[in-house]
Every structure is written in structure tokens, then in C-alpha cells.
Amino acid sequence: MTGTTPEFVINESNRFWIGVVSASHVSHAIEEGIAQTCSGKAGPLGRMRSGDWLIYYSPRTDKKSGEVLQAFTAIGRVADDIVYPFKINDDFIPHRRNMRYLPCRSVKIADLLDKLTFTKGRRNWGYSFRFGQFEINREDFMTIANEMLKVS
């Protein structure tokens, strides 16, 4: 899946998702052309369909000891309807999906807190991110995507 970039086309059947993953894991996902969320659980990935859009939010640069980042770090489109296991080692076999990522820039969530319906006016705006993957509405997706895809 690497090397393919989707067109930025939105249609009525698309759904929009946020995946919460450290920036270092996002870099690996882009390189491999895959998505993996929620510690590799199949269920959250299975809710997505081919053509849906995923934006990664990275709370930190690395999973545990990384620096605080709190930024949207990647945007991509689900390539197909296949969720598959991928053996990392005998003790860890996470599930993945194939993705096509767009070139983009990172965007700090602090710049968008008052513009997104799932964070606006919420002191505890980070609560929904604790689930690892969640669906957002088209308006919120477009707000984030427009910032990420801006040409400097």
C-alpha cells in the first residue's frame, strides 16, 4: 500500500474517524501504509469501511516516555474492507487495515479546540480520546483536514 496517495474526495457514504496513536507509531503507519489503533484490536478498525477517512491524533511523540505533542499528525483514507492480523512476535499479533495517506502537516489541537464540536466549550476535551478511536462528524473532519492540508 505504500506509495499511493488518495485524492481528497468526500462523498455521502464516507465516515470520519480519529485514531489516537503516538507520533512515532504514526510515522511507522504511514511508512507501512497501514492503520492500527487501540493496541491492535480488530473491533474499532472493523467499524471503518473502504473510503472512510482517518485522522491520527498524537498526544505524545512516543507512547510512554515521549514529549507532550497534542497534535493531529496524519490523514488517510481506508483502502479496502480487510482487517487482518499481523504478527509482531509470539506475544503480540495486532490487527491492521490498509491505508492511503495524504501528505500533510501536523496541527496542534489547541488551535482548533473552539472550532470542533467534540471539544468546543469542554474543559475535559481530552476525554473522548481515551477510547483510542472514535467517529467524528463531517464538519469537524473538514475543519481539521483543511488545516492539515494547507500549503504553507
Rank of each mutant, 00 (worst) to 15 (best):
residue 150 K to V: 06
residue 83 V to G: 08
residue 37 T to I: 14
residue 2 T to G: 10
residue 25 H to A: 09
residue 70 Q to E: 15
residue 84 Y to W: 13
residue 27 S to Q: 15
residue 135 E to Y: 05
residue 130 R to W: 06
residue 47 R to H: 10
residue 28 H to R: 13
residue 145 A to R: 01
residue 133 Q to E: 12
residue 85 P to L: 07
residue 101 Y to R: 01
residue 133 Q to R: 04
residue 117 T to V: 07
residue 135 E to M: 12
residue 97 R to H: 01
residue 2 T to P: 14
residue 80 D to M: 09
residue 142 M to Y: 03
residue 103 P to A: 12
residue 119 T to N: 10
residue 151 V to P: 00
residue 10 I to R: 04
residue 42 A to T: 00
residue 76 G to T: 04
residue 145 A to M: 03
residue 145 A to W: 04
residue 105 R to A: 06
residue 123 R to D: 09
residue 98 N to W: 01
residue 150 K to E: 11
residue 74 A to H: 05
residue 16 F to D: 08
residue 86 F to P: 00
residue 141 F to K: 09
residue 41 K to Y: 02
residue 47 R to P: 00
residue 94 P to C: 10
residue 81 D to L: 06
residue 144 I to W: 03
residue 141 F to D: 06
residue 89 N to A: 07
residue 52 D to A: 10
residue 91 D to L: 14
residue 34 I to Q: 07
residue 130 R to C: 10
residue 118 F to G: 08
residue 88 I to E: 12
residue 133 Q to I: 07
residue 52 D to L: 00
residue 75 I to R: 04
residue 145 A to S: 02
residue 133 Q to L: 12
residue 75 I to W: 04
residue 150 K to H: 11
residue 117 T to C: 11
residue 126 G to Y: 13
residue 18 I to V: 14
residue 139 E to Q: 14
residue 17 W to G: 02
residue 77 R to L: 08
residue 141 F to E: 05
residue 26 V to C: 06
residue 59 P to E: 02
residue 89 N to S: 11
residue 134 F to R: 00
residue 93 I to H: 06
residue 37 T to C: 12
residue 81 D to N: 15
residue 62 D to Y: 09
residue 72 F to I: 01
residue 119 T to W: 02
residue 121 G to T: 06
residue 119 T to D: 07
residue 60 R to Q: 14
residue 59 P to R: 00
residue 50 S to N: 13
residue 10 I to V: 15
residue 11 N to C: 12
residue 51 G to V: 05
residue 147 E to V: 04
residue 141 F to G: 05
residue 2 T to H: 13
residue 37 T to K: 00
residue 7 E to Y: 03
residue 134 F to S: 02
residue 5 T to G: 00
residue 104 C to D: 01
residue 151 V to D: 13
residue 35 A to M: 07
residue 151 V to A: 11
residue 50 S to Q: 15
residue 65 S to I: 06
residue 146 N to M: 08
residue 21 V to P: 10
residue 99 M to K: 03
residue 38 C to V: 15
residue 109 I to N: 08
residue 23 A to G: 01
residue 105 R to N: 09
residue 98 N to G: 10
residue 94 P to N: 10
residue 138 R to D: 06
residue 42 A to P: 06
residue 64 K to Y: 13
residue 145 A to K: 05
residue 108 K to W: 00
residue 104 C to L: 05
residue 89 N to I: 10
residue 149 L to K: 10
residue 31 E to Q: 15
